[in-house]
Design a protein around this nucleic acid. Structure first.
Lengths: 147, 147
DNA sequence: CCACATTCCCCCACTTTTCCCCACGAATCA
DNA sequence: TGATTCGTGGGGAAAAGTGGGGGAATGTGG
């Protein structure tokens, strides 16, 4: 299994396009088909991008859950409601739809961050706050039970 | 099982490359295949380097945990988000990507420090602060229950 | 149903980074 | 003192990221 790893600084051009880091394209392209992906938002304030196959597994899981649950409905309104699917253009870029761009506060410089099964797209300042050393140290304490 | 031990002063060249100490290469190359490794960051402010096999075990463990957990997500954003995998070039060097170089404050002189299963790469001043006698003395006290 | 504006995607061109390869110098050992 | 090993430096081809022009597609308003 190949995973998304690492962080890369890329730039969103005037047309709202960004190049996906080459390393991420390799992971996406397990078999070298179309490289389709689904992009949505994360409550932390960034965008999340899934390979289409991974996203579809999530959808099936959601489908199988009790649909009357209000919390689930709220969650789906968020995750699915923001979702945008697309493919890479021939230069390996994706187009970030204006609402998503605005949600994540993306200007010219954006960070790609790999987190195993998917990757995220961040505004630099927000990323720094979310992954600062202090924050990580305190989180590590709480996790120590898990592994 | 061979372990990483000792400290070595090497230099990062203008292109961001450093030679891995020969003793470490021997440990990495249990069988003399590709010598692949994964480099990431540590909250203490240095870089950590794992043989690829060791790193993959970590990833598998993380994958098996509940993915909705916010603390885990923060942790992965940090550990995996900074990770960079690579191989040694024919001179036994690795390329330290600019974001990692900056994170760890690496300039020309860098220290390699072996810590059993993995090794670290340090800026000299930071290493001195992190391993000063006073600090180690106080830490040793707290450990006395463990062994 | 037809103009018109807008969005999207292809192509091309430029710059920067990465990764080969070769070569030098210091240290070690015979 | 020659030979080998190890760390260091640089040249150059290839790859990756960036930006812009223009045609096709889409959607909107008359």
């Amino acid at each position: 299994m190949a995973f998304f790893r690492g962080r890369y600084l890329h730039s969103l051009d005037a047309k709202g396009r960004v190049a996906i880091p080459q390393r991420f394209r390799e992971v996406l392209g397990g078999g070298d088909e179309a490289l389709r992906l689904v992009m949505t938002v994360d409550p932390e304030g960034c965008l999340v991008v899934y390979p289409e196959a991974v996203w579809q597994e999530l959808e099936e899981k959601w489908e199988s859950l009790p649909q009357m649950n209000d919390e689930l409905k709220t969650y789906l309104r968020f995750m699915v409601g923001w979702a945008s699917d697309g493919a890479l253009d021939r230069q390996g870029r994706i187009l970030v739809p204006p609402p998503l761009r605005e949600y994540a506060g993306l200007e010219h410089d954006v960070w790609f961050v790999g987190v195993l099964q998917n990757f995220e797209i961040w505004n630099g300042d927000r990323l720094e706050k979310a992954t600062g050393r202090d924050r990580v140290r305190s989180v590590t304490q709480k996790l120590s039970g898990l592994f």
